[in-house]
Design a protein around this nucleic acid. Sequence first.
DNA 1: GCCAGATAGTTTGAACATCAAACTATTTAT
DNA 2: ATAAATAGTTTGATGTTCAAACTATCTGGC
Lengths: 159, 159
Amino acid sequence: MIDEKKTSEAARKQDQNYINNALVDVYDNIMRFEEQQIRGSRFRDINARELHIVHAIGLHDHKTTSQVAREFRMSKGTLTAHLNNLERKGYIERHRNPDDRRVINLGLTSKGRLLYRVHDAFHRRLVNSFLAGMDDDDRQLIKQALMNLEEFLDEAQKK
Amino acid sequence: MIDEKKTSEAARKQDQNYINNALVDVYDNIMRFEEQQIRGSRFRDINARELHIVHAIGLHDHKTTSQVAREFRMSKGTLTAHLNNLERKGYIERHRNPDDRRVINLGLTSKGRLLYRVHDAFHRRLVNSFLAGMDDDDRQLIKQALMNLEEFLDEAQKK
DNA sequence: GCCAGATAGTTTGAACATCAAACTATTTAT
DNA sequence: ATAAATAGTTTGATGTTCAAACTATCTGGC
């Protein structure tokens, strides 16, 4: 461990503490903000969960119910309930797959696609703010940090 | 917009995309991992929500019910329910405040303090992995990015 | 000191999310 | 042709959440 930096050990700890709290708060804040944005838009009848399901269904993927349920670590029954609501509100469509009539392929209606694009634009603004004033090297560093974190979680998950 | 970098526009977009997805996944993965860790420990009867309430109550803060509820953007009634469970399971204590007998000051039992420390250690490992191989300058950059994000969310929140 | 709000926390009743298990329709393998 | 497997839905139970009513206590003006 090299110790030539002028930053004190105490300051390092403080930074780590800040980063810790910020990491934990990030998602809550993003979720809260997403929900708030959507409440003030034409998509008043959507909550954060439903928004993310619409996002997961995506524009061109024709995903199945089981695929999306797995993605959200949610039982198939629970997803069915959400899909019923989203279908009733006019955001998604179910298409019975003609090659295997057990499976349902999911798609977005035009209203659903509009919501998708609004949400997508929001996330682009979010990431832009996150990376404000940074050059390519900086971006690589951020990316590396996130990759470290993912690897840590993946490794630990495997035990 | 300066354009002297050798990194192509496409690669930049790809990085931003990665960062976007990683940011969104981070919290879910952390939560899932926390829950999994706790399930495999002596604190089997705790879920992620309760863990975070124990963390918020903290070691020495004597917070009130209302303070903690506000922190979690949760109604007082909901928090009361969680506190009942946590008290029953032996993690927290309620202390009626003698100066103002309406207020309850919350504290952790020794079991609660133990859980707090286990969780705290987990988060330190997490942040260490996140910052693996980084020097002070790198850390400052990460901190700056997270501050950017917080500011963006705060500003936007105010509308 | 005494009453009218204000405040802290609890209780209650309803709505919703969630899961596991049973169920229906369909496909695959033997 | 039938048994087993699979995709999705339904069902019943449980848990989380909120808002509103409620209880106990405190504070400010008289």
